[in-house]
Computed example of a mutant assay.
Amino acid sequence: MSHASAAKLTLYGVEALDERRALIASLARAGRNLSPADVRQLRRALFEDVGVSRDEAQALFDLERVQDAPCAEWTEFFIECLTDHVVWQCRPTGVVGAEQAEWLVREADRCRTLTGVALLANVLAEADRAPAWMAAAVRVRAQAPEVQAELARQA
């Protein structure tokens, strides 16, 4: 007996849920910076439904790790998509729990990018409530010399 993949009804018909994760993984495996067209494709695939799963969010972090010169569209999409996942899709909405905060900070640290730090700051700005330690952790990361140097370079 074969196992069918989970499916969902999308604007484009019935689509396997695994295809969304496969799209993200294929872009990460390519190991190249995303183009604005790639980001538009991701946006269509991920935002046509109720949002992203934790597995897909994890895959987006993997994709962020291969970006060495991200386009502005990727940075905006990454921050928007993951903020939406953590703050608004997880229940209770608006609340970042300790487990979510630990996962988010750990993954942002693994990225070692300005985009990761910007994501953390954006999550804090949008959340109604987050663990107190998270604000302190984000402040330390934002004040790191390499982050400040990158901000100065981009100014």
Results as ranks from 00 to 15, higher is better:
1 M>S: 06
1 M>C: 07
1 M>L: 07
3 H>N: 04
3 H>Q: 09
4 A>N: 10
5 S>R: 04
6 A>W: 10
6 A>N: 10
6 A>Y: 06
7 A>C: 10
7 A>N: 11
10 T>K: 01
10 T>E: 06
10 T>L: 01
11 L>P: 08
11 L>M: 12
12 Y>H: 13
12 Y>R: 08
12 Y>E: 13
12 Y>G: 07
16 A>I: 09
19 E>S: 11
19 E>L: 09
19 E>F: 04
21 R>G: 01
21 R>P: 00
22 A>P: 06
23 L>Y: 14
23 L>F: 11
24 I>G: 00
25 A>Q: 03
26 S>Q: 11
28 A>W: 02
30 A>Q: 14
31 G>V: 03
32 R>T: 08
33 N>I: 01
35 S>R: 06
36 P>M: 01
37 A>N: 04
38 D>P: 08
44 R>D: 03
44 R>I: 06
45 A>C: 11
46 L>C: 09
47 F>P: 00
50 V>L: 14
52 V>I: 12
53 S>G: 03
54 R>H: 12
54 R>I: 10
55 D>E: 15
57 A>R: 06
58 Q>S: 13
59 A>N: 08
61 F>V: 02
62 D>H: 04
63 L>W: 06
69 A>N: 15
69 A>F: 09
70 P>N: 04
71 C>N: 05
72 A>T: 14
72 A>Y: 10
74 W>R: 00
74 W>D: 04
74 W>Y: 07
74 W>Q: 02
75 T>N: 11
77 F>L: 01
79 I>Q: 06
79 I>A: 03
80 E>S: 14
80 E>Q: 14
83 T>H: 05
84 D>N: 12
85 H>P: 04
86 V>Y: 15
87 V>Y: 05
88 W>R: 07
88 W>Y: 13
89 Q>N: 10
90 C>Q: 07
92 P>Q: 01
93 T>L: 06
94 G>F: 05
97 G>M: 15
98 A>I: 05
98 A>N: 13
99 E>G: 15
102 E>Q: 15
102 E>D: 14
103 W>C: 13
104 L>I: 03
105 V>F: 15
106 R>A: 15
108 A>S: 15
108 A>C: 15
109 D>A: 11
109 D>P: 07
109 D>S: 14
110 R>M: 14
113 T>G: 07
114 L>S: 08
114 L>F: 09
118 A>R: 11
118 A>S: 11
120 L>K: 01
123 V>G: 00
125 A>I: 13
125 A>N: 14
128 D>Y: 06
131 P>E: 09
131 P>D: 13
131 P>I: 11
132 A>P: 09
136 A>W: 12
137 A>R: 10
142 A>E: 14
143 Q>A: 15
144 A>V: 05
145 P>R: 09
145 P>G: 13
147 V>A: 08
149 A>M: 03
150 E>L: 03
150 E>V: 00
151 L>Y: 01
155 A>F: 08
